[in-house]
Deep mutational scan, measured.
Amino acid sequence: EAEIKAARERAIVPLEARMKQFKDMLLERGVSAFSTWEKELHKIVFDPRYLLLNPKERKQVFDQYVKTR
């Protein structure tokens, strides 16, 4: 159900806005820029903003977040 709702939101909200919300979530959840995606996943997986991006986009935004922190 959450994935269906997220898919609707992905269709409406522009990618750039969704990427910003995802980055904000990473900051708010205290995701370490010195860790790996796999180790940090448990901090963010239950946040509704996690589903704003598809899996490939999530990883790309995380990688970008790590490089710029």
Rank of each mutant, 00 (worst) to 15 (best):
residue 6 A to K: 13
residue 14 P to C: 05
residue 43 K to P: 01
residue 1 E to P: 06
residue 46 F to A: 15
residue 21 Q to D: 11
residue 62 F to V: 02
residue 35 S to H: 05
residue 64 Q to H: 07
residue 67 K to F: 14
residue 67 K to D: 10
residue 33 A to C: 14
residue 4 I to N: 05
residue 38 E to I: 02
residue 50 Y to R: 03
residue 48 P to F: 07
residue 23 K to T: 13
residue 29 R to M: 08
residue 20 K to H: 07
residue 20 K to F: 01
residue 37 W to S: 02
residue 28 E to A: 07
residue 44 I to H: 02
residue 48 P to E: 15
residue 5 K to R: 08
residue 3 E to M: 10
residue 39 K to V: 06
residue 45 V to L: 09
residue 47 D to V: 00
residue 40 E to H: 02
residue 56 K to G: 12
residue 50 Y to D: 00
residue 8 R to P: 05
residue 7 A to D: 05
residue 43 K to T: 02
residue 17 A to V: 10
residue 2 A to F: 09
residue 33 A to N: 06
residue 50 Y to W: 04
residue 21 Q to V: 09
residue 40 E to W: 01
residue 47 D to C: 02
residue 68 T to Y: 07
residue 22 F to P: 00
residue 24 D to K: 13
residue 67 K to T: 14
residue 35 S to I: 00
residue 6 A to H: 15
residue 64 Q to F: 07
residue 3 E to N: 06
residue 17 A to E: 13
residue 53 L to W: 00
residue 2 A to H: 04
residue 36 T to S: 11
residue 69 R to M: 15
residue 19 M to Y: 07
residue 1 E to W: 04
residue 69 R to N: 05
residue 66 V to H: 05
residue 22 F to I: 01
residue 27 L to A: 14
residue 3 E to W: 03
residue 13 V to L: 14
residue 35 S to R: 04
residue 9 E to K: 13
residue 26 L to R: 00
residue 42 H to A: 10
residue 5 K to W: 09
residue 3 E to V: 10
residue 51 L to A: 12
residue 52 L to N: 05
residue 40 E to Q: 13
residue 49 R to S: 03
residue 46 F to Y: 11
residue 66 V to G: 08
residue 61 V to E: 06
residue 64 Q to C: 09
residue 33 A to W: 14
residue 35 S to F: 02
residue 21 Q to A: 10
residue 18 R to N: 04
residue 39 K to F: 03
residue 63 D to H: 14
residue 60 Q to S: 13
residue 41 L to G: 03
residue 26 L to E: 00
residue 55 P to R: 11
residue 12 I to S: 12
residue 40 E to C: 05
residue 3 E to D: 14
residue 41 L to E: 12
residue 41 L to Q: 15
residue 55 P to H: 10
residue 22 F to T: 01
residue 10 R to S: 15
residue 5 K to F: 10
residue 17 A to P: 14
residue 52 L to E: 05
residue 31 V to Q: 00
residue 68 T to L: 11
residue 24 D to E: 14
residue 37 W to R: 02
residue 24 D to V: 11
residue 49 R to T: 04
residue 19 M to V: 13
residue 34 F to I: 10
residue 27 L to E: 15
residue 44 I to F: 15
residue 25 M to T: 01
residue 26 L to A: 00
residue 36 T to I: 04
residue 36 T to W: 03
residue 23 K to Q: 11
residue 17 A to Q: 11
residue 27 L to I: 11
residue 23 K to R: 13
residue 40 E to P: 00
residue 55 P to L: 10
residue 34 F to L: 15
residue 41 L to R: 11
residue 49 R to A: 04
residue 52 L to V: 07
residue 32 S to M: 05
residue 35 S to A: 12
residue 47 D to R: 00
residue 66 V to K: 05
residue 36 T to L: 05
residue 65 Y to N: 01
residue 66 V to L: 07
residue 49 R to V: 04
residue 49 R to E: 00
residue 27 L to G: 13
residue 56 K to L: 09
residue 34 F to A: 13
residue 52 L to I: 09
residue 53 L to H: 00
residue 52 L to R: 04
residue 39 K to C: 08
residue 31 V to W: 02
residue 37 W to P: 04
residue 8 R to N: 05
residue 27 L to K: 15
residue 29 R to T: 10
residue 24 D to C: 11
residue 44 I to L: 08
residue 15 L to D: 06
residue 2 A to D: 06
residue 45 V to C: 11
residue 34 F to K: 14
residue 46 F to C: 15
residue 58 R to M: 04
residue 10 R to A: 14
residue 59 K to A: 11
residue 45 V to P: 01
residue 23 K to P: 00
residue 31 V to E: 01
residue 32 S to N: 12
residue 66 V to R: 10
residue 61 V to R: 01
residue 57 E to D: 10
residue 47 D to M: 00
residue 17 A to T: 08
residue 61 V to Y: 02
residue 7 A to R: 12
residue 10 R to Y: 07
residue 3 E to K: 06
residue 40 E to N: 03
residue 1 E to D: 04
residue 22 F to R: 00
residue 21 Q to M: 12
residue 48 P to K: 12
residue 28 E to R: 02
residue 62 F to C: 01
residue 24 D to S: 11
residue 68 T to V: 08
residue 7 A to C: 02
residue 28 E to H: 06
residue 13 V to C: 08
residue 15 L to M: 08
residue 51 L to W: 09
residue 52 L to G: 07
residue 66 V to N: 06
residue 62 F to N: 00
residue 65 Y to S: 03
residue 42 H to K: 11
residue 60 Q to R: 10
residue 46 F to L: 08
residue 16 E to W: 06
residue 9 E to A: 10
residue 36 T to C: 12
residue 50 Y to M: 05
residue 38 E to R: 06
residue 64 Q to A: 13
residue 44 I to R: 00
residue 68 T to C: 07
residue 41 L to Y: 07
residue 40 E to R: 01
residue 45 V to R: 14
residue 48 P to H: 14
residue 53 L to P: 00
residue 3 E to Q: 14
residue 34 F to T: 15
residue 61 V to S: 09
residue 14 P to W: 02
residue 62 F to G: 01
residue 51 L to Y: 07
residue 42 H to I: 06
residue 54 N to C: 05
residue 38 E to P: 03
residue 41 L to P: 00
residue 6 A to I: 06
residue 7 A to F: 05
residue 23 K to G: 08
residue 58 R to L: 01
residue 68 T to D: 15
residue 41 L to D: 04
residue 6 A to N: 13
residue 58 R to Y: 00
residue 1 E to K: 14
residue 24 D to F: 07
residue 50 Y to T: 03
residue 10 R to T: 14
residue 59 K to I: 04
residue 28 E to T: 05
residue 59 K to R: 14
residue 43 K to M: 01
residue 55 P to F: 15
residue 57 E to S: 07
residue 45 V to Q: 11
residue 33 A to M: 07
residue 38 E to C: 03
residue 7 A to Q: 12
residue 36 T to F: 06
residue 9 E to Y: 05
residue 42 H to Y: 04
residue 14 P to N: 05
residue 39 K to S: 10
residue 58 R to A: 13
residue 21 Q to P: 03
residue 65 Y to Q: 03
residue 39 K to Y: 08
residue 31 V to R: 01
residue 36 T to R: 05
residue 55 P to E: 11
residue 56 K to F: 14
residue 17 A to G: 14
residue 44 I to T: 07
residue 43 K to R: 06
residue 53 L to T: 00
residue 28 E to V: 04
residue 6 A to G: 15
residue 2 A to E: 13
residue 5 K to I: 07
residue 35 S to W: 01
residue 48 P to M: 07
residue 44 I to Y: 05
residue 63 D to S: 13
residue 38 E to D: 09
residue 12 I to N: 10
